[in-house]
């Protein structure tokens, strides 16, 4: 079982309030991602759940029992840190076995579990090495190995992929996803990267300035962002926002349209503009279009779209893909 429930959890460092008040339910087996810009309080929230920080108020329940005052070592959670936090003076084997040693597990049983974890993470050949002799991806696996051997109630991940290069990051993302399918254990994952959030999560929690902006499945957030912040944060490239006359014609203060929901034409359309920078990615082309009426809009075209800097272009938003927001930035129905 790995249900975690936060009730009116808040946190202040001295005078600085980092998290005003948060209520959140994480059900057993769920993959929850906390996402938000740096300084939004997502890591602090994770550390509160871990017990590495005390809450200033509120209750944290793990599996229904109050764990607010339980020290981290007794919460039964595992954590994978951004820096991996491997013990540099221990071999990989002893790193992975460390939580089991702390739990006072019998040595043979511990070694059996370490071997099993190492096999599943392709680490068997590296068991006698020190962390310093491993590549970034291997260290990451050791950190995961150390987390899984003790069979925790839930896994906590604190931006685990941010120190890896781009290619490795995609691989590890898949591995973590597979790990979740296999273990079916609750996972809470913190990242500032919305792509990681979208690809991994069952449920995304978007945080901003210590507040929850929206909670929902990746597609809910993509389709129906609750406000301008979420709309701008989820999706890549960012959603385009248009205010003033164009928005008022749709009865909103601001309207948003995603780059992939604009139809392009070199001859005619609703909005006319000139191509600024065209980023050719091969599969797609992202066009930064300077509208004749002022403002810049990003549009996605297919990879072979035949335009270059300075070409005239017409954009037509798909009518049913508009997102409308009021003056406070909240979504209009």
């Amino acid at each position: 079982m790995g249900a975690i429930s936060l009730q009116q959890v808040n946190k202040a460092f001295g005078e600085t309030v980092v998290i005003p008040s948060i209520d959140l339910e994480v059900t057993d087996g769920e993959f929850v991602v906390f996402v938000g810009p740096s300084g939004c309080g997502k890591s602090t929230l994770l550390r509160l759940i871990a017990g590495l920080e005390d809450v200033s108020g509120g209750t944290i329940k793990i599996d229904g029992s109050d764990a607010t005052l339980t020290p981290p070592s007794k919460r039964g959670l595992s954590m994978v840190f951004q820096s991996y936090a491997l013990y540099p003076h221990m071999s990989v084997r002893r790193n992975i076995a460390f939580p089991l040693k702390m739990a006072g597990l019998d040595k043979d049983e511990a070694m059996r579990r370490v071997d099993a974890a190492a096999a599943s993470l392709n680490l068997t050949d590296y068991l006698d090495r020190r962390p310093g002799q491993l590549s970034g991806g291997q260290r990451q696996r050791v950190a995961i190995g150390r987390a899984i051997v003790r069979e925790p109630t839930a896994f906590l991940f604190d931006e685990p992929l941010s120190n890896l290069d781009a290619a490795l990051r995609v691989n590890m993302r898949l591995e973590i996803s597979e790990l979740h399918q296999q273990l079916k254990t609750t996972m809470i994952y913190v990242t500032h990267d919305q792509v990681e959030a979208m690809t991994l999560a069952d449920k995304i929690v978007v945080l901003n300035a210590g507040r929850i902006e929206q909670v929902g499945s990746p597609l809910e957030l993509y389709r129906e962002p609750a406000n301008l912040f979420v709309a701008g944060f989820i999706g890549s490239p960012r959603m385009n926002f248009v205010s003033a006359a164009a928005a008022e014609s749709h009865g909103a203060h601001t309207v948003g349209i995603r780059p992939e929901h604009l139809d392009l034409s070199t001859t005619a359309g609703e909005w006319q503009g000139k191509v600024g920078v065209a980023e050719h990615l091969g599969s797609d082309t992202f066009l930064h279009v300077h509208l004749d009426g002022g403002g810049t809009i990003t549009a996605r075209a297919d990879g072979e779209f035949p335009v270059s800097h300075g070409s005239a272009i017409w954009l037509t938003p798909q009518a049913d893909k508009f997102h409308r927001f009021d003056a406070d930035g909240n979504r209009l129905p």
Binding site: M79, S83, M102
Partner: peptide, 24 residues
């Protein structure tokens, strides 16, 4: 973070000092 990792791994203060901090 390494000492925090030890705490998450179930180490109490004595183990943290003895097995992680001192050798490092």
């Amino acid at each position: 973070e390494i000492l925090e990792a030890a705490r998450m791994d179930g180490a109490d203060l004595r183990s943290e000092l003895l097995y992680v901090l001192t050798p490092m």
